[in-house]
Amino acid sequence: MRPRARLGGLVGALALFASACTADMPRPLAGIDRQLDQAGAGQSPSLAGRWLALIAARGERQEVLLVDLEGLGPVPLPGLNRPDAQPLAVSVDGGGERLAVVRQLEGRTELVLYRRRAMAVERIPMQPAGVPRRVSLRADGGELAVEVSRDGLWQVDLVRLP
């Protein structure tokens, strides 16, 4: 009886594991993938609502791209991309209105917030001083999390945005 009971326990545990873990095949969005391939190599994707922000290669340069996934394609971002800046990470809010960007400019790495309607770029200082790396904007655009290097340590700062 004891081996059978042990076998029953094993089968029960496997059934429990199987019910708690599934292998799923997501549906590729091949049409959008093809358009993105044509737009250039893509890095640092950020999805929110109908918006996809990414860093695309334009020859030797890289620039931030904002794509409306509901058929309208890339939208203009006047004032954000500069020929002397190298974007490293980007995050978009759910309204497609705000983009947080980590970029290298004039030898330093900085975090900026871009407001699309105002076409304005605002630098967000690291306090205390540090080097930002990755950024994630909350979907309502009211707060961001940024990964910052300080004295060899990686930390996460939360920054409220007005």
Partner: peptide
């Protein structure tokens, strides 16, 4: 939806997936 940056020959690419189902 889910977006992935994937390694490719010489360059990174993006791949998007629909999770609605």
């Amino acid at each position: 939806r889910l977006a992935l940056e994937v390694a490719g020959p010489g360059r990174a690419r993006l791949r998007l997936f629909d999770l609605a189902a």
